[in-house]
């Protein structure tokens, strides 16, 4: 079991992590805006997360924390 959590207000909606996630479970949340006015990253299905940290490695803004 693994889990990702986001410091949403640091996210700039760049989408690099979306592309990096091998499970394709990361999406920019089109429904919401963070304090910077970007669509923040969100995980569509935490149960699929394998805690590989690839999303966190490619994030330019230290948004993502990964637990396993």
């Amino acid at each position: 079991m693994a889990q990702v959590t986001f410091n949403e207000d640091l996210c700039k909606g760049c989408g690099l992590c979306v592309n990096a996630c091998p499970k394709g479970i990361l999406q920019l949340d089109k429904e919401r805006l963070n304090t910077k006015g970007y669509h923040p990253i969100s995980c569509t299905d935490q149960s699929q997360c394998i805690g590989c940290t690839q999303c966190a490695l490619t994030c330019p803004d230290c948004v993502i924390t990964v637990e396993r």
Partner: peptide
């Protein structure tokens, strides 16, 4: 569960001013 990846103490924590997707942020980390 244990944390396997989190923000490093090597950064002050001040949010980066870089543009979205700029790789400066990755190299800083």
């Amino acid at each position: 569960m244990a944390i396997v990846f989190e923000k490093t103490e090597g950064l002050t924590g001040k949010p980066f001013h870089y543009c979205p997707g700029c790789t400066h942020g990755i190299v800083h980390r």
